[in-house]
Amino acid sequence: MSSRRKSRLKRAGKNELAPADIVDGLSKEELLATHLDWQPDRLEALKGLLDAKEPWPEHWHWDWSKKAGLLDFMAYRCIGIECEGRMQGLMMASTLARSSRVGPTGRAVLYVEYIESAPWNLKDLVDEPKFSGVGIALLEAAIELSEEEGFGGRIALHSLPQSEAFYRKYMTDMGPDQSHEGLCYFEMSAEQARLFLEGGK
């Protein structure tokens, strides 16, 4: 069963905050319901890009329904952020500790497998995104999960090229990882996590 705690999202283009809920420990059913809710908007936006001969975002093929099976295992946890009755972003994390490569090496790190904003919040898909700050809120949730797991707030992920500049602001860029299709590996140390949380609150 999932649990909720309070958060906020910024209405894109407006200096206005909307109350939101971090939904921790999403079930398979909740993940599938989100996938079904997002799919029509995603397909419509992609069709628009196709008609306009614009490039598609690099993660256009992500299918959360195919990731739902991971939730049969204790090693995975899915967290969402909900606002105005709809899930505005999703994150799948592995709570099976990876080894840190930054700072003291070999320490337990929480690995973020997937992180995505709802299609109506993506600048690549829509002209006027509805909410901003979804990625920040989910990174905060990842750090909190890392702390809860006893990993000291340390988190890591591989970034798609389109998102590298975002992660570079908060995490250490360890460069392309050939074992992961050449995607850049980013890690946030315990100290970087502390600073991130202080800056976000």
Binding site: M74, A75, L96, A97, G106, A108, E149, G150
Partner: peptide, 22 residues
Amino acid sequence: QKDLSKTAVIRQALRLYQLVDH
């Protein structure tokens, strides 16, 4: 080595065992 509590290490072992066994 991992900077984890003993309970956290045991939890890690359980998660890994469940995943690998499946």
